[in-house]
Computed example of a mutant assay.
Amino acid sequence: MKLSRIAAFSSSLLLGAVLTLTGAGQAQATDTALALDYVALGDSYSSGVGAGSYDSGSGNCKRSSRAFPKLWAAAHSPSSFAFTACSGARTGDVTAGQLGPLSSSTDLVSLTVGGNDAGFSDVMTTCVLQSESSCLSRIATARAYVDSTLPGKLNQVYSAIRAKAPAAQVVVLGYPRFYKLSGNCVGGLSEKERSAINAAADYLNAAIAKRAADHGYDFADVVPPFTGHEICSGSAWLHSVNWLNIGESYHPTAAGQSGGYLPVFTSRA
């Protein structure tokens, strides 16, 4: 009786060891299966302008080690990672200068683009330096561009990505709203201007999301995580006007990259 119990106990130990080793082997196999080739494309919101810690080798593209693509790659160790996003990029810049790393073996692509095409920088310059009526007029011009021209520009870049990386999952990320309305900002833009700028961001995001969906791409909305962290919130993840480094104005801080963009991208990737 004792011998049979010992044999049974020994057998269970052996079986447990086998299952443990098998499970470890399966986990290792899964890790290998999940290895992927990742390419990060786009404008300053992808390159990480505003987050600091820029790679000197990236020059005016200002690619930051705190940008969400770099953070995601550091956390997930893809088998390859190419980071070609560049400050100031428009759709044509992406197609002309950023798609080199894409290939039939590319598994994952991230992209932010469209804001510069729509005149983001000029809108904010006009609103900060000129009258309320000039600000609202410039926003109306930007919205008209989003209606008339931007969809075709987005189609071109989305189609170019698919042509070079036919099997890739493409995650297109949007832009945050800039302002918390009725927030704690004193002076500066009027509440009407802030509201119009936020509405323009929503309008741009809707156009980008529609084109992304039509191409079978995932759209990642960053408005929810940035809610409560807009300019005038008291806990902003966005720079307001930065007169010492004007190019960082209205861009995510390091916290905006890690707390806003990274979780949304991770949930889609």
Rank of each mutant, 00 (worst) to 15 (best):
F81N: 09
F83R: 04
F83K: 03
F83W: 10
T84C: 15
C86P: 14
C86L: 14
A89Y: 05
A89K: 07
R90T: 09
R90G: 15
T91I: 07
A96Q: 09
G97F: 11
G97E: 06
L99Q: 05
P101R: 02
L102P: 12
L102M: 03
S103I: 03
S104Q: 00
S104V: 02
S104H: 00
S105I: 01
S105R: 05
S105F: 01
S105D: 07
V109G: 08
V109D: 02
L111S: 02
L111A: 01
T112D: 04
T112R: 01
T112M: 01
V113F: 14
G114M: 07
G114E: 08
N116K: 04
D117T: 04
A118V: 06
F120C: 14
F120M: 13
S121V: 11
S121K: 10
S121P: 12
D122F: 11
T125Y: 14
T125Q: 15
T126M: 13
V128L: 15
L129R: 10
L129S: 13
Q130R: 09
Q130I: 06
S134T: 02
S134R: 10
S137I: 07
S137H: 12
A140G: 15
A142K: 10
R143Y: 02
R143M: 11
V146C: 06
L150E: 01
L150S: 03
P151D: 03
G152Q: 06
G152E: 05
G152N: 06
K153S: 12
N155P: 12
Q156T: 07
S159D: 03
A160W: 01
I161P: 04
I161G: 04
I161T: 02
R162G: 05
R162D: 06
A163N: 00
K164Q: 06
K164P: 09
A165P: 06
P166V: 01
A167W: 09
V171G: 13
V172D: 04
L173D: 05
L173P: 08
G174N: 02
G174A: 01
P176G: 07
P176Y: 02
F178Q: 09
F178R: 01
S182H: 08
N184A: 13
V186M: 15
V186D: 15
G187L: 04
G188T: 00
L189M: 10
S190T: 06
S190H: 08
S190W: 02
E191Y: 14
K192A: 15
E193L: 08
S195M: 09
S195C: 11
A199P: 14
A200D: 08
A200P: 14
D202M: 08
D202F: 06
A206Y: 08
A207S: 13
I208V: 12
A209W: 02
A209C: 13
